[in-house]
Design a protein around this nucleic acid. Structure first.
Lengths: 203, 203
DNA sequence: TGTATTCAATACAGAACTGTATCCTACGGG
DNA sequence: CCCGTAGGATACAGTTCTGTATTGAATACA
């Protein structure tokens, strides 16, 4: 079971997982390489044998995390698209189900976003990832709309951008004040109004 | 002109301004005390003569920044509330005018938010500030609605929360992709639909 | 004009962190 | 069964940062 080649990639994976935890707790800059190694149960020797620097690990973590997210989504979209049901439930459900731990995901992705706002190269990577993410959602919206005999009066991509913006802003409020703003409440209250405004029976 | 007592408070102010710049560029953890002092044109001696630690400065900066923001808002609300005009223009205009430098403000407030999500005490301070902020906006919305003979079918505070969530999420997208998402575009496209749905002529 | 005080600069000690170079161990191949 | 190699641990040097203790200069005040 302890295959030879798998050992290394297992170490890498544990370091990435440790980094995810520590970054969520203290942020990119606040976490030292040693913090990450401690969490993963290794010493810095293992780290530098697998990554050239913390920056490289951040990049790898970004890739690994978003790859997994996109995978989740691609897996969820087909069944949601074919199952009948309200469009919004599908979209909001997807946003929730895609990331298992909302709090951690929000911390990490916000940190990435801040990083990207300061570094054009990171911005490019992030924008590419977000574009793929939106594309999946847009496809979902278009499919459900068509299935349900609806026509949208604004581009689906615009609508998706709006849903994401609202979702991210609302998530921030929910995490800051869980009692006052239950997760999803703002979305479920207001998005139906928007959808009503932009959709009409097709033909 | 070089009054005696003012010298110290001037030093403090310059340190705070320097901190604002450096924090925006590198984040809280990424900025060293020396970075801040360099930017302000002082050495660490001045810093430790005015603040006990970087954490204390962060707190002071948060206070100073939000105080100024609330001041701006309190100054803008009365005239917006009395001047006739579309409700949304007033609210969105306020959100824009309150912070002169959108990019810097977004970086700083996002950083504060991340900090608050990790530190309950900071969360309390941030939530208090945000509550005051929402209160001003809510008052503005209620006044304009009443003046315009409108009645809202959801609590104004809920609506304000939604506007803020959308605004913050949209601002993030605008900063990441200025060409694809002009500032304010998502808000101006979709908020009228929401407002339409939740308002009706009163009496 | 002399003295006291205040504020910021300088000098210094210690801690934390990074990255490299070397060592040790376990497994795979011959 | 021995040797070679790979992966991770350990040891170390250099840098950076923090915080304090001391010093120096400028202003208020007598």
């Amino acid at each position: 079971m302890e295959t030879p080649k798998r050992r290394r990639s297992n170490t890498r994976a544990r370091l990435l997982e440790g980094a995810l935890e520590v970054f969520a707790e203290r942020g990119f800059h606040g976490a030292s390489v040693e913090d990450i190694c401690d969490r993963a149960g290794f010493t810095r020797g293992a780290f530098y044998s697998n990554f050239a620097s913390k920056d490289e690990l951040v990049l790898a973590l970004f890739q690994a995390t978003t790859d997994r997210l996109l995978e989740q989504i691609e897996a969820l979209v087909p069944e949601l698209a074919t199952q009948p049901g309200p469009l919004l439930d599908a979209v909001l459900g997807l946003l929730d189900d895609a990331a298992p731990d909302q709090r951690r995901w929000h911390l990490i992705s916000t940190e990435f976003t801040l990083h990207a706002l300061r570094d054009p190269q990171a911005a490019e990577a992030l924008n590419r990832q977000r574009a793929m993410f939106r594309e999946s959602l847009t496809k979902l919206v278009e499919q459900i709309a068509e299935t349900g005999g609806l026509e949208l009066t604004v581009p689906a991509d615009q609508f998706v951008r709006m849903v994401i913006a609202l979702h991210e802003g609302a998530r921030s409020q929910s995490l800051l004040e869980p009692a006052e703003v239950p997760a999803g409440s703002l979305e479920h209250t207001f998005l139906p109004m928007v959808l009503d405004s932009i959709s009409r029976p097709s033909r």
